[in-house]
Design a protein around this nucleic acid. Sequence first.
DNA 1: TATGAATGAGCTTTCATTCAT
DNA 2: GATGAATGAAAGCTCATTCAT
Lengths: 205, 205, 205, 205
Amino acid sequence: MKSALRRRQIRDCARKVISQKGYHAAAVADIIREAGVARGTFYRHFDGKRDVFEQLIDEFFVSLELGIRRVDISEGSPAVTEQMLDNVHRVLRILFDNADLTRILLREAVGIDEEFDRKIDEFYSRILSLIQLSLRHGQEMGIVRECDTKIASLIVLGSVKQVMDFAIGSRKQLPAPQAVGRELLNLVAGGLFITDVAAPGGQGQ
Amino acid sequence: MKSALRRRQIRDCARKVISQKGYHAAAVADIIREAGVARGTFYRHFDGKRDVFEQLIDEFFVSLELGIRRVDISEGSPAVTEQMLDNVHRVLRILFDNADLTRILLREAVGIDEEFDRKIDEFYSRILSLIQLSLRHGQEMGIVRECDTKIASLIVLGSVKQVMDFAIGSRKQLPAPQAVGRELLNLVAGGLFITDVAAPGGQGQ
Amino acid sequence: MKSALRRRQIRDCARKVISQKGYHAAAVADIIREAGVARGTFYRHFDGKRDVFEQLIDEFFVSLELGIRRVDISEGSPAVTEQMLDNVHRVLRILFDNADLTRILLREAVGIDEEFDRKIDEFYSRILSLIQLSLRHGQEMGIVRECDTKIASLIVLGSVKQVMDFAIGSRKQLPAPQAVGRELLNLVAGGLFITDVAAPGGQGQ
Amino acid sequence: MKSALRRRQIRDCARKVISQKGYHAAAVADIIREAGVARGTFYRHFDGKRDVFEQLIDEFFVSLELGIRRVDISEGSPAVTEQMLDNVHRVLRILFDNADLTRILLREAVGIDEEFDRKIDEFYSRILSLIQLSLRHGQEMGIVRECDTKIASLIVLGSVKQVMDFAIGSRKQLPAPQAVGRELLNLVAGGLFITDVAAPGGQGQ
DNA sequence: TATGAATGAGCTTTCATTCAT
DNA sequence: GATGAATGAAAGCTCATTCAT
């Protein structure tokens, strides 16, 4: 059981170091220095730098996916709208509470190698499917207007990612997650801004 | 003048190689092999791998920023809505026409090093300012509803990025830019989907 | 402690290789081949070629400076003349016993770079000060005739260097240090400025 | 004939650059920049960096060797002592007047490669022979006392080199060559082995 | 003759990983 | 399990030299 603790300790240090220096700039030497263990110890617990990193990401993926509950459309369950908003809220909270992992996901996990890119693509694909499913349910229940739900889900995802990226980037101080959540929801979920574009599809672009 | 051609040739090869293998996986050796020139030739024209890469990105930034025109609100100019839509269209076209550079921008230029991150952050900042300015103009003219224009601009940017990322990722075949543009505009610009979220701001999350 | 041994082993090989091929011609590859270690091992123990070289020189400087004892002019101490001669003898012995380092100092450590040149200049400055001090003491005691002790010390140093350089250069076989020492002393110390060394070596060499 | 001028111009620039930066640090690029010519032009006139350098040294050797006249012991010629002193004076003047070449000879021409080392050794050998010959003549005429003329000549050479090295090294300002020459001569020539130089100490050092 | 773009051998250095203790 | 010295493939880069124009 000692082993599991060691593993976690090293993983935490890797998380810290990588979120600060970036995946490529973070050397194994940095991680073990931070953890106060020897090189060999590191390799006893992980297959290598990529491995710790992958575990970090995997773990975060699990957290996030656990935060997203499938919309329950059976009798007596809460309003679909509310369930969707709750999902967004939970996810935002996880992202805010794990700013370093969020940073890693958005900024460091990109472009590691093909296989890793695929893994991340697959994660986002699953997220997109869930969003799309929710939107479809909303449409079925007449509370989401007709649209290409594929693209709509991309917009939801992209918006969350960009807002989080901004929140992370502005080092000064993170905006309160509640505030960000509210704004985001008002805009994305509540209806956007250009009030009078009557029949946008008509413009023949 | 020959020199400029050579430089361009190498830059084009770097563009190809990096968009295929990624920044870190692409070695200078790969670039010069692709270009069919000697090592020294590469270093005669560029300070190093990072330098070509930076030039690639810089050039792309210029293209993109040239594609975004400030909204003209003087008498007799086209409707603000139309100008905004034109901007989105032009940018989408540039992104689609330079799928490899777009891929590089979205997937490879992230996490190179701190200085580079800053450069990209600054680019996005400028873009965000332009979007925000347009939205403010729209509000002044009563065609964009009241909202936090900062976050709204993040949503516009994030949406475009995510849609493009998806378009790039689906290797099979890129969706027609027109189609993507239309959908995106309908949704982002025209108003979103959840029809009846009455007063989401009230929930005080 | 193993580490210190490795370090010494590599340093010794560097000493051998550099004294044979010269600083510039000696590649790190040559040193590690001689030492039978991997590239990484070399860089684990030294910052680079310059670093080993500097350590080599530093170490030699220490040996040499340890060989030069300040002239003791208190009651009951050996004659100043004798102490001066002893110093020259000790230094000559060290130089002869470390012919390779002497060669490195005289022939390879020159013109490496500005900083190194300064380091060597400083070493010689210290030596010159010691020589000058001895001469001054000799003058005070009336056994060294009046002269510009600054230039006199340059002459002593230059003579030793040139004689050693010659000894090293004649690859065939080094002259016996005793012989060289005796000649040198007779001429520099005995015939030069020390006025009353009546019949210094009996000239019989 | 234009060609000869070009050659000289480039050689002069090489002289300047090399004396400032050192042989290894001075790149061909530095030399041609200083000379304001193209790379190809440089290689049209010289076989390479080593070649200019060698020419520089060769030329200096010629100057120096021209400055040393064989001692004339025929009837009616000036006193041998005077001829010897004249030689030293002439050489010192050349060295002082060409401080940059002197610097190159003493500090940069050492340890270039084996062949070059040999060339320089041979130069010094010739100088040593001339010195030794003078000393022998002096001995024959009873004005130089008995000693090992080989080592005595090394001492003369080493002294001059060291004094010049010091003069060059003290960047502040070169001591007047006359002063240095006088000091040097008083000590080396006057006080050393020449037995009957009546009152060399008188010249007010 | 002058030019300067092109060459490429060869150098230093890094760092993820292995393995004997 | 822990250690850290050793490994060596692989990368970036320099610069003296060549050669087509």
